[in-house]
Design a protein around this nucleic acid. Structure first.
Lengths: 203, 203
DNA sequence: TTGTATTTTAAACAAATGATTAAAATATTC
DNA sequence: GAATATTTTAATCATTTGTTTAAAATACAA
């Protein structure tokens, strides 16, 4: 129950390949990933990848759509909850989303990179209108009709997501270690609602 | 003097290859770029790429370091200017940086992707300590010693850069067109200083 | 146990890819 | 204008890469 990695030897071959592919694709991106890398990571014969998933591209699509679901799936319900106030939505969102990204720190940069390098392939799968036209956005508009509400949405997203995007570059430069990063993100959960609130009050 | 693209036929072969490589690398990333793509884009024989630049990797490094210089070069001087106040630094930075990124919208995501997929290769070239230990950060610390100043630096960076990172995903989803994006970014130049100021005052 | 279906393996293939070579074309020098 | 140096070209090479194949191993059903 405790060791996830060791338990993986008990997974079915199909699941072993998929889990290995997730790790390799997330680390190197689609283009730099070799099917042989995945086979080696999974500890299986190369041909099994095609046996179970037909092609590198089909395997990638499968994983990519799961990651897109993870990245966008949790957002829309919070931002469209008709039972919460603007302030509650902001608090819930920053807290939940920072938790999600703490569990999956490479998720944002992975998705943004792959979508950018292949926009037409994933465009139709992005439920962005549910975010851009969300109840939260309407609530913001009510409070500050003088400023385009997209600004505040962008700030809320950015303050939650951007640190995870900058993380590798800060780490590569030796400025940030894992532990302090995590405590900063914990601090952010309570700071972001305050900041958004202050921004909404500026004249 | 007016048409940059047409003038390119007058460039030297070496310059033609470099300009073409910039476009292709920026669009597809290092791993997905074929030397043949670059040769075709430049309108030159494939062998000339190796004749002038030795290898795909050396050509990429050349371009990458130029892009890193562009992405980081303008930041440190503004944030370390001993003649400006905190407020002035924030205003100068957001305005100048949004202008820079408006001219080079793909710059942030390109750099962040490539550094992430190859951290050890570029880590030593990143002048991040000049930003993380800048005068601005010290000025922020003076004003709000109760909150880690990195938070405000991250917010300043994020509010300026993050929209450019999200741009492709918003465009792919058909939510944002070029024109409205540009006017939002113009608005941001004056809004960001107000927001940062408001954030620095929260209790 | 025998026969059948499923899974796994080693080998190989065809296409793509980064790079090189040797000759041809062009420019430069004296 | 001949000799030399530089640049460009077409062809080719050696690897890499995604995928397939046919046989071997294993699991399953009767």
């Amino acid at each position: 129950m405790a060791k996830k990695k060791l338990a993986e030897v008990d997974l079915s071959t199909e699941e072993k390949i998929k889990e290995a592919a997730k790790r390799v694709f997330m680390k190197k991106g689609y283009a730099a990933t070799r099917t042989r890398d995945i086979a080696e990571e999974a500890g299986i014969n190369l041909a099994l990848l095609n046996y179970y998933f037909r092609s590198k591209e089909k395997l990638f699509d499968l994983i990519m759509f799961e990651k897109l679901e993870k990245f966008f799936g949790a957002v829309a319900p919070i931002l469209n909850n008709s039972a919460t106030t603007l302030e509650q939505k902001v608090t819930l969102f920053s807290s939940n989303y920072i938790d999600l990204l703490t569990e999956n720190p490479e998720l944002p940069l992975f998705i943004l990179s792959e979508v950018r390098y292949n926009p037409e392939r994933f465009a139709h799968k992005l439920p962005l209108s549910k975010i851009a036209d969300s109840l939260l956005v309407r609530q913001i508009h009510e409070k500050r009709p003088d400023i385009n509400p997209l600004h505040f949405l962008m700030n809320l997203l950015g303050m939650s997501v951007f640190p995870f995007i900058m993380k590798p570059i800060f780490q590569a430069a030796g400025i940030l270690n894992e532990k302090t990063f995590l405590s900063r993100m914990e601090e952010r959960k309570v700071l972001i609602p305050k900041w958004i609130n202050a921004m909404l009050k500026t004249r």
